[in-house]
Amino acid sequence: MTGLPALHESLPAAGDRFCVVDSNGDPAAVIEMTRVATEPLGSVTAAYVHAEGRGYPGIAAWRAAHEEFFRSDIVTETLGHTPDLTDETPVLTQRFVLIGRV
């Protein structure tokens, strides 16, 4: 995650398509959301963590990295407070398919 969306932006939905850019900001691929859900942080599964593809060895490492991000200065500044994360904290999970490379 490179930054936070504006707080007024709507959430993605299944069927939405997005252009993915490379590290130079050039279009690289088009993806389509297949599942978008808000669920409790404590319900994120090992299968989801693996599918995210960031190399976390398990749920604990995934959660620690995400808690570190959500307690970071940029998030605190954006929200105006440091979030208190619990197993019940809602998180947005997303799955997508590659439509094609650009």
Rank of each mutant, 00 (worst) to 15 (best):
V102G: 13
R17T: 10
D16Q: 06
I31N: 00
Y56S: 14
A51W: 00
E39T: 11
E39V: 11
V30E: 02
F70N: 04
R54K: 06
G3A: 05
W62H: 11
L7E: 08
T86I: 14
R101F: 08
A61W: 08
S72K: 13
V20D: 03
E67Q: 12
M33G: 06
E39D: 12
I59A: 13
Q94S: 11
V44Q: 02
G80M: 02
A64W: 06
F69G: 01
L4D: 01
P57Y: 13
P40M: 03
A46H: 11
Y56I: 15
R17L: 04
T82R: 14
E67K: 10
V75C: 06
D84N: 11
R95E: 01
L41R: 04
V21N: 13
P12E: 01
L11H: 13
D16V: 04
R35H: 11
Y48D: 09
E77F: 04
P12C: 06
P90N: 10
S43R: 08
G15K: 02
G80P: 00
H81F: 13
Q94N: 08
T2F: 01
A13P: 09
H81K: 11
D16L: 02
E9N: 11
P40H: 02
E68W: 14
D87F: 09
V44K: 01
A65E: 00
T86N: 13
D26I: 05
T82I: 15
E77M: 04
V20Q: 03
G55M: 00
L85D: 06
L7P: 13
P57F: 12
S23H: 12
P5Y: 15
H8T: 06
E67H: 10
E68M: 15
T2G: 04
A47Q: 02
N24A: 15
H50E: 05
F96E: 03
L79F: 07
H66S: 08
P27L: 08
L98M: 07
T45Y: 04
V36Y: 03
T89V: 05
D22C: 13
S43L: 08
D22K: 09
T82D: 15
A61K: 12
P5R: 14
L92E: 07
C19R: 08
D22V: 12
Y48Q: 12
R17G: 03
E67I: 11
H50L: 12
P5Q: 13
G55V: 00
D22Q: 10
L11I: 14
L79R: 12
L11C: 14
I31S: 02
E52Q: 03
V20H: 06
G80A: 05
A6L: 08
R54S: 02
R17C: 03
V36T: 09
I31F: 00
D84Y: 09
T86R: 15
A14L: 02
A61V: 11
H81V: 07
T86Y: 12
P57L: 05
E52T: 10
V44G: 00
A28T: 13
P27R: 09
D73G: 14
A29C: 07
R101S: 06
G80K: 07
L7T: 14
W62E: 06
A51N: 03
L98S: 05
C19K: 12
V102D: 12
R35S: 12
C19Y: 11
E67D: 09
T2N: 02
T89L: 09
V49W: 07
A60C: 02
L79T: 04
S23L: 10
E67T: 14
G100Q: 11
D16Y: 05
S10H: 01
H50R: 14
G53K: 08
F70Q: 04
I59P: 04
G100M: 15
M1Q: 13
